[in-house]
């Protein structure tokens, strides 16, 4: 078990390291010139560009810049902005020259919001999706089953932005039934209450897929011989469904969940923008559209990757508890 977890974490770390190198190369060795976006004038004079590059340290070799960035992540580093020297402590994700702020501060301030939204949504879609899927499977072919599958198919197919946007417009703006969102700095109460509406929408829309997965898996499992054996031994219907059926049906559902983490994060980002939740997604979108602030975008990409990889590891470990065969392979 321990070896399995250790191997899983090692794989995750290797993916993270490669992502770090790739994002760094794309951003700082790529054709997008970070200096250009900082220049106030539209057609920036070459002299001024050169000045900005020198002050940001962009004129040095890429390997040196990367070593510095890498060092910053683990021990921190000093960054000069104009004449001032800022100490950026580990984990240092760089410096936004655009609004003169450290990327780490900006990103970590919003990190809890994004994670909380993702986890709340996960609670909703696993709870709703799995329980409705089980009920539909046990009443296979009934009117309830057919309605549920139909509704989940339709709502799962309509683009998520449309569903989320209409929900947000009608239930939090036009008829403010559900509470508005608040940043973390407004206090824990309003912050978590504000996350209810976005988490419900994201959770319910995501649950449409899980209803169908769980239902399909349960239908398969309940038709197995060992379930019939359990029934014939006189074990009560409820116990057969939950103890014998659900446990076996859950492991494929968890596989899907593991593969779905990147999708969940994307859903969270879209939800943040639509409900104007002050999280990583909104930060990245604002940085992209309004200011072209590459260090911020790179910081959110890295942190987003950490979230996806970490959640993947959690799901894989949970998976090995549900399905003991995984540990042996």
């Amino acid at each position: 078990m321990f070896i399995y977890i250790a191997r899983r974490i090692a794989l995750g770390v290797s993916v993270l390291l490669v992502t770090l190198v790739v994002t760094f190369l794309i951003f700082f060795a790529g054709p997008a010139d970070p200096a250009q976006s900082l220049c106030a004038e539209n057609r920036c004079p070459a002299v001024k560009l050169e000045q900005i590059r020198t002050s940001m340290g962009l004129d040095r070799p890429i390997s040196v810049q990367f070593a510095e960035y890498f060092q910053g992540l683990f021990v921190g580093r000093d960054i000069t902005d104009g004449g001032n020297v800022n100490h950026c402590s580990a984990p240092c994700l760089g410096y936004s020259f655009h609004n003169h702020l450290q990327v780490s501060d900006e990103v970590f301030r919003r990190f809890p919001t994004t994670v909380a939204l993702a986890l709340l949504a996960m609670v909703v879609f696993l709870g709703v999706g799995v329980s409705l899927g089980v009920v539909a499977a046990t009443r296979r072919g009934s009117a309830f089953d057919r309605t549920l599958v139909g509704v989940s198919q339709v709502f799962g197919a309509i683009p998520y932005i449309v569903v989320a946007l209409l929900f947000a417009l009608y239930f939090t703006v036009l008829y403010p039934i559900l509470p508005q969102t608040h940043p973390f700095s407004d206090g824990f109460g309003p912050w978590i209450v504000g996350l209810i509406a976005p988490a419900i929408v994201l959770g319910l829309v995501t649950s449409t897929a899980y209803v169908r997965y769980t239902r399909a898996q349960m239908v398969d499992t309940l038709a197995q011989d060992y379930v019939r054996t359990a029934r014939s031994k006189g074990i009560s219907g409820r116990s057969v469904i939950y103890k014998h059926g659900l446990r076996a049906a859950l492991s494929p559902v968890l596989t899907i969940l593991g593969l779905d983490m990147a999708g969940l994060l994307s859903g969270t980002l879209i939800t943040e923008q639509i409900f104007s939740v002050d999280g990583l997604g909104k930060l990245a979108i604002t940085a992209l559209i309004q200011t072209d602030d590459l260090p911020i975008i790179m910081g959110t990409v890295l942190l987003g990757c950490v979230i996806v990889v970490a959640l993947n590891i959690v799901v894989d470990i949970a998976y090995s508890f549900v399905d003991p065969r995984v540990r042996l392979s």
Partner: peptide, 21 residues
């Protein structure tokens, strides 16, 4: 590798860069 990327964030980041290239 692609499966563990937060692809929406990556797409955001790539749009201006690919456009420049």
């Amino acid at each position: 590798f692609f499966l563990s990327l937060p692809y929406l964030l990556f797409v955001f980041a790539l749009v201006p860069i690919v456009q420049n290239r």
